[in-house]
Amino acid sequence: MRYWLFKSEPNTWSWDQQVANGDAGEEWDGVRNYQARNFMREMQIGDRGFFYHSLKEKSVVGIVEVIAEAHQDSKTDDPRWECVDIKAVEPVPNPVSLDMIKADPRLTEMVLVKNSRLSVQPVSEAEWQIICDMGGL
């Protein structure tokens, strides 16, 4: 299993909306960055990810699971753009803010710290465990 981080603006797609979709999940559509798309191409069913609210909140708020591997993004006919489907697994009891992540010296190499604009990014197993611990999981 690999670990990832999915960033969303909560006014566009929130954790509550993700949860409301239940086991059916949702396409992680609309990604128009080649590096983020390539990360989604690496994902496998069962991989886990952090659901991260961007903009003002800037916090890890939930855990998601990949339920469909990369496929054509249904929001475009352009074959360059693919996406995965994810479903909500559980909320993070104590959301972990970007400031908390940046303040932890064990997370200085995390992609979120080095390239906070990338909407889909890998998370190492060690980073995953640290953030889960910080969030009360």
Results as ranks from 00 to 15, higher is better:
residue 19 V to W: 03
residue 56 K to N: 15
residue 137 L to F: 15
residue 113 V to M: 08
residue 55 L to N: 13
residue 63 I to N: 01
residue 114 K to G: 07
residue 60 V to W: 00
residue 28 W to M: 04
residue 63 I to V: 15
residue 65 E to H: 10
residue 22 G to F: 09
residue 128 W to K: 12
residue 94 N to A: 10
residue 21 N to S: 08
residue 29 D to Q: 14
residue 100 M to D: 13
residue 85 D to C: 15
residue 96 V to M: 01
residue 24 A to Y: 08
residue 7 K to I: 01
residue 110 M to P: 03
residue 20 A to V: 01
residue 21 N to T: 12
residue 135 G to V: 06
residue 51 F to K: 08
residue 31 V to R: 05
residue 98 L to E: 10
residue 59 S to E: 13
residue 22 G to A: 06
residue 90 E to F: 06
residue 40 M to D: 00
residue 102 K to E: 11
residue 8 S to W: 12
residue 115 N to E: 08
residue 81 W to S: 06
residue 82 E to Y: 02
residue 97 S to H: 02
residue 51 F to V: 07
residue 15 W to C: 11
residue 133 D to W: 08
residue 8 S to A: 15
residue 83 C to M: 14
residue 78 D to S: 05
residue 105 P to L: 08
residue 9 E to K: 08
residue 11 N to M: 13
residue 135 G to M: 06
residue 135 G to N: 10
residue 75 K to C: 02
residue 93 P to S: 04
residue 72 Q to G: 00
residue 137 L to T: 09
residue 37 R to G: 00
residue 134 M to V: 00
residue 17 Q to C: 05
residue 129 Q to C: 02
residue 44 Q to P: 01
residue 48 R to M: 15
residue 81 W to G: 05
residue 121 Q to M: 13
residue 132 C to T: 10
residue 55 L to R: 14
residue 69 E to C: 15
residue 25 G to Y: 13
residue 125 E to L: 08
residue 15 W to Q: 05
residue 63 I to L: 06
residue 64 V to L: 06
residue 17 Q to I: 06
residue 107 L to W: 02
residue 94 N to Q: 07
residue 91 P to K: 13
residue 42 E to Q: 11
residue 4 W to R: 07
residue 21 N to I: 04
residue 127 E to L: 05
residue 54 S to A: 10
residue 54 S to E: 07
residue 67 I to R: 03
residue 86 I to K: 05
residue 73 D to I: 01
residue 35 Q to H: 11
residue 56 K to D: 15
residue 32 R to K: 14
residue 6 F to G: 06
residue 114 K to C: 08
residue 135 G to S: 09
residue 3 Y to I: 03
residue 40 M to G: 00
residue 84 V to H: 00
residue 10 P to G: 12
residue 103 A to R: 00
residue 55 L to G: 13
residue 57 E to A: 13
residue 28 W to Y: 11
residue 35 Q to S: 04
residue 127 E to C: 10
residue 48 R to Q: 15
residue 9 E to R: 14
residue 129 Q to F: 04
residue 20 A to C: 09
residue 100 M to F: 00
residue 67 I to H: 02
residue 104 D to V: 05
residue 11 N to K: 14
residue 96 V to W: 03
residue 121 Q to C: 12
residue 22 G to Q: 02
residue 97 S to L: 12
residue 3 Y to P: 09
residue 131 I to N: 00
residue 133 D to T: 15
residue 84 V to I: 15
residue 59 S to P: 09
residue 57 E to P: 01
residue 92 V to T: 15
residue 77 D to N: 10
residue 122 P to Y: 12
residue 99 D to R: 14
residue 35 Q to N: 00
residue 87 K to H: 01
residue 71 H to N: 04
residue 122 P to A: 09
residue 46 G to H: 06
residue 91 P to C: 02
residue 82 E to C: 03
residue 109 E to V: 07
residue 124 S to Y: 05
residue 73 D to C: 06
residue 101 I to R: 00
residue 115 N to K: 13
residue 30 G to N: 07
residue 7 K to H: 01
residue 93 P to W: 06
residue 130 I to D: 00
residue 135 G to K: 03
residue 44 Q to I: 00
residue 40 M to V: 05
residue 101 I to F: 10
residue 48 R to H: 14
residue 43 M to F: 07
residue 31 V to H: 03
residue 132 C to P: 02
residue 21 N to Y: 04
residue 90 E to N: 07
residue 94 N to V: 03
residue 5 L to H: 06
residue 60 V to Q: 02
residue 48 R to L: 15
residue 64 V to Q: 08
residue 43 M to A: 15
residue 60 V to K: 06
residue 4 W to H: 07
residue 60 V to T: 09
residue 46 G to Y: 06
residue 119 S to L: 01
